[in-house]
Amino acid sequence: MSVVDIDQLEFSYDRKSKPVIQKLCLNIEQGEIVGIVGSSGNGKSTLLRLIAGLEVPSAGVIRINDKTVNDKSTFIQPEHRGVGMVSQDYALFPHMNVASNIAFGLHRMPRKKRQERVQELMELIQLKGYEDRYPHELSGGQQQRVALARTMAPRPSVVLMDEPFSSLDAELKQSIRSELRDIVKAEGMTCLFVTHDQADVEDMSDRYIRLGQ
């Protein structure tokens, strides 16, 4: 079953300039981990934003879990797509501490379960004891891990990650990468991530796509 199905997608930021994405087709199967590589500025982040529903394509169709979320006449709002995303700049809520940030998407869980889930993730990202810190009190790499946890917490069926490991050192990267892979596989999530690092692709993904020329 294909989880993400993109057909003839087209997008440009303004009508005058040349499209950032042109006639893109992409098919991702359930449980796959797919890496996206490509040179800077050729539309990797834009592609993720289109799938998430943060940008509106000028043409083409996007289907997620066999449901059309985007075509000429349909546009499903981001919160109803079941897609999680870690953005390049993390976007951790500055007015909430780490625990609240991670719990933010867990509104459908009962309180007890919610706390357990947060603890589980704190362990995964190796930040136990940092629950009460605020984002500005964390290092870049720590922030990135919290952003990762926040996105994984509600178990979205599709996870989009924009350079999720860019601020991590080699050692941490490796351990998080393999754990992340295990979790994604165990939960049956589908994952699409952008990276510049060939090692990420080799270690984590089942296959990769090169965007652009």
Binding site: A52, L54, P78, E79, M85, A91, H95, H107, P154
Partner: peptide, 25 residues
């Protein structure tokens, strides 16, 4: 818009996002 986007992607409605994310910020 990045904080609101993050909130929406975590499944929160526009109204909730407005009260809990946009307004405090």
């Amino acid at each position: 818009t990045r904080y609101s986007e993050a909130s929406r992607l975590l499944g929160r409605s526009r109204l909730y996002t407005f009260w809990r994310v946009d307004l405090p910020l």
